[in-house]
Design a binder for these strands. Structure first.
Length: 432
RNA sequence: GGGGGGAUACCGAAGCGGUCAAACGGGGCAGACUGUAAAUCUGUUGGCUUAGCCUUCGGAGGUUCGAAUCCUCCUCCCCCCA
């Protein structure tokens, strides 16, 4: 039994841990769980910290349980900003659960015969037939409103500075989540719940419920990891186009790779401990090398390679690297012109590819019309005009201004035009 | 049930009859500098056929030459008292 808590500690993945957790886990093989909202059919990288905690749990010899929050997801956790959640019908819920499991399987072992094989459960299964009356009688009775009100997440919503108040549904959330822990404790002998720092209050409601309902000799543990932040204070895991998903249909492997490659130095030092399985020694070495030659961005490259390969594949990773080199290396119009069609499409896989009618192009399409209405690269002519004035637009790697006239000499392989908005945003326009 | 406060652009927040497409801050985007980093500086941030015009200040009406600003009704939210 490896020291699980210690492993997370040096990786900076512990925000708070209940006393006794480390001692207990060093002596006993146990099960631990993390909750995941099934609001989409894919995980995004915000979920990854929880998944990595489960991964380390399994590596340490314990049993990881991924809890899909089919029931809790319908309510909405008041500790987040999230307001009303939409109710998922059961078919969607099951489909999402299934897709999530596939992605989790890239990290966790659900298959082999080992004792600590990972488990996936859905709290909808035990909540759906639980009536309101039964719930308030059997569960609600054990927890006082006073206790629930003392939670930070509730206080914040009830206090004078709150503008929206809090519905009874949201108030009940912690109890429903707490019941999950009780259920897993009783049915799966699960003694540990993990989550983000914002989940501490919810988790302790669970441990409290276990103690009060089952008796004080029952031990349950809690462990939270810090909220993943960016050094500049921005939200982690968001890009211009929204969440970074694990599903290649939502976020292409190229974009995925680019996300990690673009992480700042300061963040890279943190993230490499959290999102890769490299040893402490290896990471220290990398940080040292990076410090000696920061421009080589060894940390970012290692980080991007490790995660892209795990989530997608080695081939996807290599394609992303190749594409990045062409796009960000010393590429010129000439390099682009030399690419054959297959290579071109390969490089720009994962880049938006709007289409334009050949007839319109041949008629001498106006630059603004082309950049805005026809391709949607810019939301309006005004925006396109502004960007052109800011010298932010490049066509086939050539900076252009408002007076530029497109013509057939701009076509690569007779049917493609590459437009760049700023340095990093590429578009491959197809003439059809 | 009674009393009070509020709803402004992506967010926060000014404005309280014309000079308001709406101050300021944050965020976003872009440019310079760099290492596809951070910090910094600069520009920009409703739309258009851009010295002009059109649509926007919770919703619907009204007063006025003119309304985000005044009046009426409605919707939603917060606070206090019962």
């Amino acid at each position: 039994m490896k020291n699980f808590v210690e492993e997370l500690r040096w990786r900076g993945m512990i925000h708070d841990v209940m006393p006794g957790t480390e001692e207990y886990m060093n002596k006993n093989m146990t099960s631990g769980y993390v909750g995941i909202d099934p609001t989409a059919d894919s995980l995004h990288i915000g979920h990854l910290v929880g998944v990595m905690m489960l991964k380390h749990l399994q590596l340490a010899g314990h049993r990881p349980i991924a809890l899909v929050g089919g029931a809790t997801g319908m309510i909405g956790d008041p500790s987040g900003k999230s307001q009303e959640r939409s109710l998922l019908d059961e078919a969607t819920l099951r489909k999402n659960e299934n897709e999530l499991k596939k992605q989790l399987a890239k990290f966790l072992d659900f298959e082999s015969d080992v004792e600590n094989r990972a488990l996936l459960v859905n709290n909808y299964d035990w909540m759906k037939n639980f009536t309101f009356l039964e719930f308030i009688r059997d569960i609600g009775k054990h927890i006082t409103v006073n206790y629930m009100m003392a939670k930070e997440s509730v206080k914040k919503r009830i206090g004078a500075d709150s503008k929206t108040g809090m519905s009874f549904t949201e108030f009940s959330y912690q109890l429903v989540q707490g019941y999950d822990f009780l259920y897993l404790y009783e049915h799966e002998n699960c003694k540990l719940q993990m989550g983000g720092a914002d989940q501490w209050g919810n988790i302790t409601t669970g441990t409290e419920l276990i103690r009060r309902k089952l008796g004080h000799e029952n031990e349950a543990f809690a462990l939270t990891c810090p909220l993943i932040t960016k050094a500049d204070g921005g939200k982690f895991g968001k890009t211009e186009s929204g969440n970074v998903w694990l599903d290649p249909e939502r976020t292409s492997p190229y974009e995925f790779y680019q996300f990690w490659l673009n992480v700042s130095d300061e963040d890279a030092k943190k993230y490499i401990k959290i999102f890769t399985l490299l040893s402490q020694k290896e990471i220290e070495q990398l940080i040292k090398e990076h410090g000696e030659a920061p421009h080589l961005r060894i940390l970012q490259k290692t980080l991007a390679q490790d995660i892209t390969t795990r989530v997608h594949s080695k081939a996807d990773y290599e394609a992303a690297v190749e594409a990045s080199q062409i796009l960000f290396g010393k590429g010129t119009t000439e390099t682009l012109k030399k690419l054959d069609e297959r290579m071109l499409l390969n490089v720009f896989k994962g880049v938006p590819q709007p289409e334009v009618q050949r007839s319109e192009f041949d008629m001498g399409i106006g630059l603004l019309d082309f950049l805005a209405a026809k391709t949607g690269i810019f939301k309006s002519n005004g925006e396109a005009r502004r960007m052109l004035k800011d010298r932010a637009v490049m066509i086939n790697k050539n900076r252009v201004d408002e007076n530029y006239q497109l013509s057939s000499t701009d076509l690569l392989n007779n049917r493609y035009v590459i437009v760049q908005k700023g340095k990093k945003n590429y578009f491959l326009i197809k003439i059809v």
